[in-house]
Amino acid sequence: MHHHTRLKLAAAGAVACIAFAAGCRSTPELVAPPQGAAISNPHQYDDEWFAAARLGRIDILKALLEAGYPIDSTTDAGYTALILSAYDDQPAALDFLMQAGANPCLGDKHGNTALMGALFKGELPIARSLMNTHCAIDQTNNAGETALSFAALFGRLTLLPQLVSRGANPDHTDAHGGTALQMAEAQGNRAAANALRKVGATR
């Protein structure tokens, strides 16, 4: 059961990697709309918007927002610009988007949030920034996994105390009834199991 859950997480991560890599292979020429112009069809600038988030092009993001581009638009996979900026280690773009009102709590089609993406990629400064948003610290993805689950399973163990101090439940059960500690033990991951126990996991 726990192995199945981990496989689902790994598969979701692999899909995310493929999707992001595919998006980065051919970067469109980033051209913002003329200054002062309003966008009649916002989605004609989808390529520019999401590429700007991945590349940290705040100038393009700002110009598109000023022209009326919807800040929480998503790709076909459900990625927002904020998720992409977190995943691709663009802290300045992430900060800009959050200050402009982007919703950091939105998940992709698998329910994975920007925080989960940052933990998966190991972008720890970005993860710390996202931990300080208004989002529920135990927000779950479609598999019932939380940010603490991601931190434990992907080896971001230094963040476990900070997550728990912000209210994360170390004994949270996922959609299959398993906990992060049970999964760590099933994997033989002693470091994760010990780290989880240190922050209060009991089952």
Rank of each mutant, 00 (worst) to 15 (best):
S149Q: 09
T133D: 01
E123V: 07
L130G: 08
P125D: 00
M116G: 07
F120G: 01
S149H: 14
L148N: 05
I126P: 08
I137P: 08
T113S: 14
E145Y: 10
T140F: 00
F154G: 01
E123L: 00
F150V: 12
L130V: 11
C135F: 08
A136W: 03
A114F: 09
A127K: 03
E123F: 02
L153I: 12
G144A: 11
Q139H: 11
T146P: 04
M116F: 05
L119I: 10
C135I: 08
P125W: 02
H134C: 00
Q162K: 11
N141F: 10
R156Q: 15
Q139W: 01
T158I: 07
L124Q: 08
N141I: 12
A147Q: 04
T158Q: 09
S149V: 12
Q139F: 07
N141P: 10
N141V: 12
I126Q: 09
A152M: 12
H134W: 00
L115N: 08
L115H: 12
A143H: 12
L130A: 07
A136N: 13
E145C: 12
M131W: 08
A143R: 14
A143C: 01
A151C: 10
S165N: 12
G117F: 06
L153N: 06
M131Y: 07
E145S: 09
C135D: 04
G155W: 04
T113L: 03
E123K: 11
T133C: 07
G122C: 05
G167E: 04
M131I: 06
S129T: 15
L159H: 08
L163Y: 07
M116I: 13
P161A: 01
I137D: 02
T146R: 01
Q139R: 15
A114W: 04
F154Q: 03
T113M: 01
L153C: 04
P161D: 00
L157V: 04
C135Y: 06
S129P: 00
I137S: 03
A136G: 15
L148T: 04
K121E: 14
E145G: 08
L124G: 00
V164M: 11
G144L: 08
T140V: 15
M131E: 05
R128N: 02
N112S: 14
N141A: 10
N132I: 03
E145Q: 15
A147S: 13
Q162F: 11
L115D: 05
N132T: 13
S129E: 12
L119E: 09
A147W: 05
L153R: 08
G111T: 10
D138F: 03
A143M: 15
L124I: 15
L130R: 07
L119K: 10
G167R: 01
L153Y: 13
T113W: 02
L148R: 00
G122D: 06
P125E: 09
L124D: 05
F154I: 02
A114V: 06
H134T: 14
T146D: 04
N112E: 13
K121L: 00
A127R: 04
T140K: 13
L157Q: 05
A118V: 09
R156K: 15
I126H: 01
I137C: 02
H134A: 14
S129A: 15
C135S: 08
L160D: 05
N142Y: 06
L157F: 03
